[in-house]
Design a protein around this nucleic acid. Structure first.
Length: 297
RNA sequence: GGUAUCGUGGCCGAGCGGCUAGGCUGAGCUCUGCAAAAGCUCCUACAGCAGUUCGAAUCUGCUCGAUACCU
């Protein structure tokens, strides 16, 4: 009979220490790491995305790092599909796989699944963007009201991005069932967090390190791609603005720190509502290993 | 010592007699495909004291503090 399979998931805010813990766990359980970080996929950007170091990557096999180019568009749905396929392969040789990352939606997609969706209609998307730019959110609200008034009443109607998405779905007659999918493995959910001030301090310091490690140079090489979604992200946006003369360098660095702190806070908010999530401090490795063993016993 | 200008919430910053400017930070939150994204909510301050006035952050005086210039 085949052994039970586990997905040990390490989540938490940026810079809390997920990478280090994941590597320790992977070594301890003699397994591999599946990364769920929506920016570490991209092979061209490493410094600003705080990828694991080369030594760390050599120590344990990592999947979903450097597997995409910034010119590609990738979504949570794509990730769910690719990660599931990979996991089924990995479970042939391993009973445990370590999932690590901070991209809440991507992780949720893998844990619970997303509904099947037809591909985005590019023409419609473009039309929506154009009309939104000219007429504002009101246009999107009215458009959605015609298609699905009930949906409009029950959503964040001030959010253009979500309105566009809702219109796309409504216009394709897709029925969302929003039920959690039963996975062929058990998910063990561990969230790392620490004192807010300490976390912010670590974030600030890490940004300085990124600058010293050549974030500016890396960004310079990415200038031609700055309109791609992959580069619409903290660390690069601010440096591009510095290049364009919008901010001084010190100001840009200050903004990277600030936006990283804001991001960390949003991540914490996201994970707070997750059920079955167990919270630990980053230095509690032994306690975490015990916890995992208990869960698997 | 004199003259001038100024002193607004954690920070920036408008207002210049009556209707909680606004922005940023910070905190809280939303979440089925751009998610390191996008959006929502909260935090009623005018240096102090005295006065003018029905009413003062806004006008007057004094005190304290800052800045600039002069001797």
């Amino acid at each position: 009979m085949e052994n039970k399979k586990y997905l040990v998931s390490i989540v938490g805010p940026t810079a809390v220490g997920k990478t280090a813990l994941a590597i320790e766990l992977a070594k301890h359980f003699k397994t591999v790491i599946l990364s769920a970080d929506s920016r570490q996929f991209y092979k061209e950007i490493s410094i600003g995305t705080a990828k694991p170091s080369q030594e760390e990557l050599n120590a344990v096999k990592h999947y979903f790092i450097d597997n995409k180019s910034v010119t590609e568009t990738y979504s949570a749905g794509d990730f769910e599909r690719d990660a599931m396929n990979l996991l089924l392969e990995l479970y042939k040789d391993n009973d445990i796989v370590i999932l690590v990352g901070g991209s809440g939606l991507y992780i949720k997609a893998l844990w619970e699944g997303l509904d099947e969706m037809p591909p985005v209609d590019e023409a419609l998307r473009q039309e929506l963007i154009t009309n939104f730019e000219q007429n504002g959110v009101t246009y999107l609200q009215e458009k959605l009201r015609e298609l699905d008034a009930h949906k409009l009443e029950n959503m964040d109607a001030q959010n253009p991005q979500r309105l566009m998405r809702a219109i796309e779905i409504a216009s394709q007659n897709v029925i969302l069932n929003k039920t959690k999918i039963k996975r062929p493995f058990e998910v063990i959910k561990i969230c790392l967090n620490k004192d807010r001030e300490q976390l912010y301090d670590t974030i600030n310091k890490r940004v300085d390190i990124m600058i010293n490690n050549g974030l500016l140079k890396e960004s310079e090489q990415m200038v031609d791609f700055k309109n791609h979604y992959a580069l619409k992200t903290v660390g690069y946006t601010e440096v591009f603005e510095f290049f364009d003369g919008v901010h001084s360098l010190p100001k840009a660095i200050e903004l990277i720190k600030q936006h990283s702190r804001n991001y960390a806070k949003r991540q914490i908010t996201w994970f707070k509502r997750e059920t079955d999530l167990h919270w630990f401090e980053p230095n509690e490795t032994i306690k975490i290993i015990d916890f995992i063993n208990n869960k698997m016993a």
